[in-house]
Structure formats: structure tokens, C-alpha cells
Design a protein around this nucleic acid. Sequence first.
DNA 1: TTCACTGCAAAAGATTTGCACCCTC
DNA 2: GAGGGTGCAAATCTTTTGCAGTGAA
Lengths: 145, 145
Amino acid sequence: MKSAKDIFSEYLSKQKLKMTPQRRTILDAFLNEEGHVSSEELYNMIRKEDSSIGQATVYRTLKLLAESGIAKAVDFNDGVLRYEHKYGHDHHDHLVCEQCGTTIEAVDPEIEHLQEELAKKHGFVLTHHEMYLFGVCKECQDKSE
Amino acid sequence: MKSAKDIFSEYLSKQKLKMTPQRRTILDAFLNEEGHVSSEELYNMIRKEDSSIGQATVYRTLKLLAESGIAKAVDFNDGVLRYEHKYGHDHHDHLVCEQCGTTIEAVDPEIEHLQEELAKKHGFVLTHHEMYLFGVCKECQDKSE
DNA sequence: TTCACTGCAAAAGATTTGCACCCTC
DNA sequence: GAGGGTGCAAATCTTTTGCAGTGAA
């Protein structure tokens, strides 16, 4: 199976773009992250090790990573765009705790199927979807008792 | 059944806030809109009739409308926050056409139910959810043939 | 009379862009 | 060597906020 780095390299050359040390650094940092990173978070992590990389490059590279299919943009409605791993990770939806901010990733095949049906009923051909379930997680429920 | 205006008035007085001509104007303009309006769109509409209302007031009032339960914020990931009618309108999800921007509102009771189940399985108590299905609508499919 | 409300302009915060120099292919 | 890439700072764009004056209750 191809590594994320291979995918990215291939994407770059296909688009006649270039691999650079900065892009490598940012890709590595991104791959080392779990969860959902914002551009700024990633920038701060990277800066600790290589302070010569600029914010703009991180923004630009994350966009490229999304285009190449390695990253996926997710929006929790808090004003910051985050990115999560996409390549090698299955599609999933998000359960977001409104109190502590924890997010859980989950999929329900039945829901996925019904979404297709619903789209078809309205004449749509789906390209992708986003589902966010907002609520209170177990821990926060216990806490507030 | 209470009108949206009543709801808003009650909300204001409960919060010790005041009803003002500006708020009345903005509420009216919002209620006259169908679909999903951004603050700026609403501001532009209002300005045609009363150019003395400021942007900031529109932003501030839409926030109030959302708090009072009359409006609901929706985010189609295009950088602008939109508001749609909530009071007197059932909950629904969105089908968004990525080509022409059309949105269709839809609900599937079965999906709604499964969402609850999914949340329960992960120990969450749901407060609300958002589901966006992105794809290509009938018209745009026909167009590109 | 008392605070909340408003318009304005300035501020803030996230992201994008212009530009001159740098470096990959 | 050509053309894309980079850092930096300035520019954008949406939304928020400070302030001094205005007005609803």
C-alpha cells in the first residue's frame, strides 16, 4: 500500500508542482498528529523545530494536502478550519461534545445507506457528506451530576 | 399560535433587553426572506429601505434572533454564516448542490432515529445535529450532459 | 432616569495574496 | 534556466467591539 508521502509526491508531479523541504516538514507534522488540527496549531508545532517556515506556507500546504486526498477539511463551526487524516482512514462522522470539545468519530452503515437514498429521492448525485451530532459526552454528563 | 414577533418580544423582555425600531426592521426583513440569508445579504436588503441601520446592528440582531429560537445558524462551509427560519419550521437537513449552490431541505425520520441510536451507543446525549449532503442536483446533471 | 442600543469606525481573527528572492526539476 | 515555492508583510474578508451619543421602559 502506498504511503501518504507517495500519494503526495505523485499528486505534486501530476500537477507539475514541486516537492520542497517545507512541504515535507508540514506533511510529516500533519501525519504525526492525531485528531483534527487547525493550520495555526500545526504552524505552532512546526515552528518549535524549524522557525523558518511561514504561516502562509502551512495554509498553502494544507490546502494542497486536501486536494491530494491526504487530508480532509472539517468544520466544527468555531471559526477555525481543521484538517483530519483522510488517506488510509475510513470515512466517518463526528460526535462533538459541546462542553469539553471532545470529538468521537463514528459511522453507521445504515445511516450512510439512507443518506444515499434520500439524495436519490431528490435527484441528487452525492459526492460527499458531513454529519455532526452535537451533544454532551458521557464524562461531562457524569461531571454535572 | 404565537407569531415570531411575539416570541422575540417575550425573549427580549425576559432578558431585560429592549425592542427597538431597528430590531423590528431586521426581524421583518428576516421573516420575509425564504432560504438562507447571510448577515450581509440582509444588511443590503435593509439598506435599500432604511440606510440608517448599521452592519453591526444586523450582526447583533441576528445573533439575538438565533438565541431567541427564531433563527438558526447554518454553515455551508463557504466562509459566511447564514441564518434560516427556525420558529414554526421543522428541523431539516440540507442537500447542497456544489455546482449551482441550490439547497434542498429534507428530513428522513429513519435517519433521525438512527442518529439518536448512534449517539446513545457512544454515551452521548444529543442536543442537535447537522447533516449536509453535498452533490450535484438534477438540473446541473442534465446541464452537463 | 437609567441602562440598553445604535452607528461608526477601528479592531480582531482567520486566511489569502503580492512581491522579490530562492531552489527544485 | 524556467517556473514554481517561500517568507514576509500587507491585504482581505467576515465578524466583533469600544465609544459617545440616543432612546426605550
